[in-house]
C-alpha cells in the first residue's frame, strides 16, 4: 500500500505534492523526541509527530520514512511545507490522535496481509 492509497483509504489529508506519496508504507512509528525518532523510525514507516518545525523534515529525510503524519489538525509552518517539497518528503495530517492513527494504520496493514 502506498502513502497515497493509505491517505485515501483512511481519509488523511495530503499536505504537499511529492513523488513520495507513491512510497510503500510498511509500518508506523509515533515519537516526538527527534533523536529517538531518528534512531527508531524505519524506512517505510509513517512517522507521527506533533512537531512541525524544519527539523522534522531533516529527520524524515535521513530516516527515509514513507511520510510524516501530523495529528490533531496541528498547523504546519509554511517553511516546513516548503522544505518538505524541496526534500521530497510527503506530509499528511488529520484530526485524529497519534494513538488512533497508529491503530488505523496497523489495522490497514494487517488487512493487507
Amino acid at each position: 500500500m502506498t502513502v497515497k492509497e493509505l491517505a485515501q483509504m483512511l481519509g488523511y489529508k495530503i499536505i504537499n505534492k511529492s513523488d513520495s506519496i507513491n512510497k510503500k508504507v510498511t509500518g508506523v512509528y509515533a515519537c516526538d523526541l527527534l533523536s529517538h525518532a531518528m534512531a527508531k523510525v524505519n524506512e517505510g514507516d509513517v512517522w507521527i509527530t506533533v512537531h512541525t518545525n524544519l527539523n522534522v523534515i531533516a529527520v524524515a529525510s535521513l530516516t527515509n520514512c514513507a511520510c510524516v503524519m501530523i495529528p490533531e489538525n496541528i498547523d504546519i509552518e509554511d517553511q516546513t511545507v516548503e522544505r518538505a517539497n524541496e526534500k521530497g518528503v510527503a506530509l499528511l495530517s488529520c484530526s485524529k490522535s497519534s494513538a488512533l492513527i497508529c491503530y488505523e494504520i496497523l489495522s490497514a496493514l494487517k488487512d493487507m496481509r
Binding site: 516526538d32 523526541l33 527527534l34 533523536s35 529517538h36 525518532a37 531518528m38 534512531a39 509527530t49 512537531h51 518545525n53 527539523n55 522534522v56
Partner: peptide
C-alpha cells in the same frame, strides 16, 4: 520544545 534535548545525541552517535 523543538523536540531536541532528550540527552540521546552522544549515545546515538556512539551506537551508530
Amino acid at each position: 520544545e523543538m523536540g531536541f534535548g532528550a540527552g540521546m545525541g552522544l549515545s546515538n552517535i556512539k551506537k551508530n
